[in-house]
Design a binder for these strands. Sequence first.
DNA 1: CAAAAGCGTTGATAAATATCAACGCTTTTT
DNA 2: AAAAAGCGTTGATATTTATCAACGCTTTTG
Lengths: 193, 193
Amino acid sequence: MHENLLDYIKQRATSPLTNDEEALIVAAFHPKKLRKKQYFLEEGNVCKYVGFIVKGAMRQYSVDDKGVEHVVQLYIENYWASDRESAVMLTPSKYYIDAWEDTHLLVATVADMLDLIEKVPSFGQMTRLMDQRSFIVSQRRLNSTISNTAEKRYEEFADNHPQFIQRFPQHLIASFLGITKETLSRIRKQAIK
Amino acid sequence: MHENLLDYIKQRATSPLTNDEEALIVAAFHPKKLRKKQYFLEEGNVCKYVGFIVKGAMRQYSVDDKGVEHVVQLYIENYWASDRESAVMLTPSKYYIDAWEDTHLLVATVADMLDLIEKVPSFGQMTRLMDQRSFIVSQRRLNSTISNTAEKRYEEFADNHPQFIQRFPQHLIASFLGITKETLSRIRKQAIK
DNA sequence: CAAAAGCGTTGATAAATATCAACGCTTTTT
DNA sequence: AAAAAGCGTTGATATTTATCAACGCTTTTG
């Protein structure tokens, strides 16, 4: 049940996990199933949970004053779903997170996460890497958005994340890239030539 | 000499620093002065240093194939200058970091930083907060870039970071926002009405 | 002090992207 | 099985933003 998560942690830690440590982790993470379209987090709520995706696909998005959705994150297996801003700052979230496919999660409270970081060094290492890695990915994406045309951004994304292209419909990819679905459709049409 | 840095750490740690800990930190950070336009990091080099800005202003930017600069970060007092991607992944940097004003830094090697994280718990807490905070800021910026028009992005930025508006010329702010200097000039003209 | 570089602005025009509306096809719901 | 919703596409048009060129003013440099 918790194998994927334990493997994930072991791969990112410098020393192996003791049995006690494994037990602490297993105790903190509860399995949860979400059907397609069910919310993991809704706008206005403080994000109190962190979810590790064992199987499935999710998305994080905001809804602007015109009711338009803007996808800010796409998640698949071995990704962590949560609104870090809300969880860290304890402020109401500006985002929704919901299941795009039926999804199997391992969920811990933010409080339990902090506890694990303190008690299990490997877990602390893992979350530190996670934080750094998240920032790097976000920086890259930002840099790409600032520097490149929509076309180049799509190509870059498709090259680096083919799994997402297969897994999510085009209009979500478009939103994630910050362009309209029509523009993405036209970009793809050109690219084929 | 190291007061600003020590204060910065103390504000972010849950327990006070011991004398020994302070000594370790002071030993790791060396003062360095950069004159305006001097490089702290050049493209192609692995980022081996992290700089805490005591006084001054710096910027991080990439140069695209057409020779156009794209500002990705602006730094002032109490900011950390470094290319985290390069430092963490040990890959050649895609960025330049240089001094915009004459700048007074406290510089540590990435290796010494790792050492301090291990030996000084408060320092570890501080860097963890730094990582989280960086990600949050980056996420917000990305979300703003994806969701808003240039005008709204500028307003948001000007509201949240008036210090930067005063400190850096408009063409750098424009580049940071991912728009041209002409467009920013026109946006500001409109805004006055 | 003269020359050069840096900076912000403006105008004219071009390019990129969004918007709106409609259609066909597939999948889901009733 | 019929109706509805979801998805991608296309066309026509509007809007946003970039590009190119030029100018005046200020600051820096030789």
